[in-house]
């Protein structure tokens, strides 16, 4: 009769003095798990290590220097060339949308950069809010293909009679020049 553990019994076991059949010691029962076989263990290890390796690679490549502020990007302009990178700054009060493009300026540490964005900005995009843009230098402006809003850690209840804070007005400073 089969046991729960599937243990084989032999009928050739010699009888003992009292008539009982000697039974060899039973092997320990093992709980069968999905990762019970070496092949599956190796497969799981490869998948997990691969995932971790990918995350570490992505992390080392992107996370530690996630963006350059507008002033840093202007300072590093020569070395950046037309390479893709992220730039951070606060949107000025000069947002214009036309022909599927959004034209605006950002500033950081008294440096202003003109931006032309080719995609639709996110819903929280507005003057006075910090943004991180992905794109590259293109002549006198930063050509952005992704706008991400970088909201602060501060929260305030919205009141119907609250006045919206005014963003600094746009200056006539050329792209990459000193801002207000």
């Amino acid at each position: 009769m089969a046991l729960s553990g599937g243990l084989p019994l032999t009928s050739e076991s010699p009888p003992e003095a009292d008539g009982r059949v000697a039974v060899p010691p039973a092997p320990r029962l093992r709980t069968r798990t999905f990762f019970g076989s070496p092949g599956r263990r190796l497969g799981a290890a490869v998948v997990i290590l691969g995932a971790i390796g990918f995350l570490v690679y992505q992390g080392l490549g992107n996370a530690t220097v996630y963006f350059k502020t507008a002033d840093q990007a202007v300072a590093d302009r020569a070395s950046l060339g037309t390479k893709q990178f992220r730039i951070e700054g606060t949107v000025q009060n000069d947002v214009r949308q036309a022909g599927g493009q959004t034209d605006f300026s950002i500033y950081a540490n008294r440096v202003t950069v003109r931006v032309v964005d080719s995609k639709e900005p996110p819903q929280l995009f507005k003057p006075g809010i910090p943004v991180v843009l992905e794109g590259h230098w293109s002549g006198s402006y930063f050509a952005s293909d992704l706008v991400m809003v970088k909201h602060s850690a501060s929260y305030s209840a919205a009141h119907p009679d609250r006045l919206e804070p005014q963003a600094p007005s746009s200056s006539s400073v050329p792209a990459g020049g000193s801002g207000p």
Binding site: L55, Q58, G59, G61, N62, A63, T64, Y66, P121, P122, Q123, L124, F125, L146, V147, M148, V149, K150, H151
Partner: peptide, 14 residues
């Protein structure tokens, strides 16, 4: 909803 992207490889998310 807020940033405009589902995911980005910044240090916290990574």
């Amino acid at each position: 909803g807020s940033w405009g992207v589902w995911w980005t490889w910044d240090a916290r998310l990574t």
